[in-house]
Design a protein around this nucleic acid. Structure first.
Lengths: 105, 105
DNA sequence: CGAACCCATAAGCACGTACTTATGTATCGC
DNA sequence: GCGATACATAAGTACGTGCTTATGGGTTCG
């Protein structure tokens, strides 16, 4: 119920959403993640903490490094929310169907 | 590109998202919408203006009334963003497939 | 014509929050 | 062991924004 709320609030910030998107490339340490962003390292850590609290990211410690990994299943409540409105909206369904067909092969 | 950003920012506020969801019941005037919310009428108007600017809602004027209607296609960029991560995420695909099958009949 | 209603805009305020710098805690290399 | 590196937390600040009350423009009805 409040899961969508947390997800919307967490992903609303552009920088934090960019961090999430960047993790789509694969597991990454904080410093790896930090390079390429114009904000400070603590800012990155704070965004990662928020993403983790929202279930969008998982953490793995190894020595002095902390590796973060995408957790796409965390998007499920958000996806469910969007799907409720997708039924209004036939044209886009077709494209999704194509996507699913491709994935079946 | 910035379309998702606007959608995330617009839908991040719980009250505004509740207004959007309530419009799922069908076209409604501002005062109809206002009843049932604990915020003032100007607050509702401000949320509607934001939703309209994001393309999530359309307006129809009739005399002294303003009727607002859901525009689910406005969610397309957000849905597209979510879909990019849905591919990571096989179990949920199955349910979607069922939904599509039901809709084919 | 005037009063009541519908809705939007203006102005001001209060609060959340994303950032910064500063500091703390481990861990690695020499 | 010591300095350097990796990351997290603390504290403080600045800014966006969602709310309020006040007001204005426009429409309907008596």
């Amino acid at each position: 119920m409040t899961a969508e709320a947390d997800l919307f609030r967490t992903l609303a910030d552009p920088t934090r959403r960019a961090v999430f998107e960047r993790l789509g490339e694969g597991e990454m340490s904080v410093s790896d993640l930090h390079s390429g962003f114009s904000v400070s390292q603590p800012a990155i850590s704070q965004h990662l903490a928020a993403l983790k609290a929202a279930g969008l990211v998982s953490e793995r410690r190894a020595g002095r490094n902390a590796y973060y990994r995408l957790r796409p299943e965390g998007l499920a409540p958000l996806a469910g929310w969007v799907d409720r409105y997708r039924t209004f909206w036939p044209e886009r369904i077709g494209k999704l169907k194509e996507l699913l067909k491709d994935m079946d092969q």
